[in-house]
Design a protein around this nucleic acid. Structure first.
Lengths: 117, 117
DNA sequence: GCCCGTTCGCAACCAAAGGTTGCACATGTC
DNA sequence: GACATGTGCAACCTTTGGTTGCGAACGGGC
């Protein structure tokens, strides 16, 4: 099984700050390092670095407008990341169910055994 | 919205190595730092540190057996983590759908506008 | 045209986290 | 008792998220 996830995408959305940034970018339809840092507990430079990571992961794209550098979410790419996220969740969920089923089977087996004795 | 996730749990399952460790522990019904490190590309000490993190997050529990220190997955806790995982995925999925719907509405609006002109 | 406020990008620096090596201690086995 | 195996602790390195401190580009008012 082993949940084969694209590791760049996962680590990109793994960071809490980056998740909040994606959330803000989605909610407001884009933003700059400065505008985002105003609503986050980190400095503009930290935001800029995160935007670089997200950009390299393909989750956002930049377009220079005037003296601003506006970022927007690449929704197709984010959809891919979300799909991977839920595939990992689904894989673990399935495995947990299997384990639980096996445990119950063993339990039933033990009960039968106890009765025989 | 802002995906209010228990951050300890998330960061615990956020690390790729720890995800593989949980996977192995589930598949084999438990293991020690040494047994896990044999199937992972990291040293026993690194595995031991990760087991400490997972233990503090409540995702695994240790039981000293002889000179071994055997770890098993706390399935209820992992189930909680998986649920949070998929809730984040679901939240983003919902937001993406909303954005898409809005975009399509604007598009339709533009088309009507173009026709009028 | 020029100055001033914004916005940006770069570099140095700091702290936490994942990983390694090395070593000492405990515990089964012969 | 000697030896192999499993563990824990400590020092160290590297990456990464974060900061501060600058200098440079760009826009609007005088």
């Amino acid at each position: 099984m082993s949940t084969a996830v694209d590791d760049d995408l996962w680590s990109a959305i793994g960071d809490p700050t980056r998740r909040r940034m994606l959330d803000l970018l989605l909610a407001e339809g884009g933003g700059t390092a400065t505008s985002l840092s105003a609503r986050l507990p980190v400095t503009r430079q930290a935001v800029a670095k995160h935007l670089g990571v997200l950009d390299r992961a393909g989750l956002v794209r930049a377009s220079p407008i005037g003296r601003e550098r506006r970022y927007r979410v690449d929704e197709a790419q984010l959809a891919r990341a979300v799909a991977q996220l839920s595939s990992v969740g689904a894989a673990w969920d399935a495995r947990l169910r299997r384990i639980k089923a096996i445990a119950e089977a063993i339990q039933r087996d033990q009960d039968r055994h106890d009765h025989r004795q």
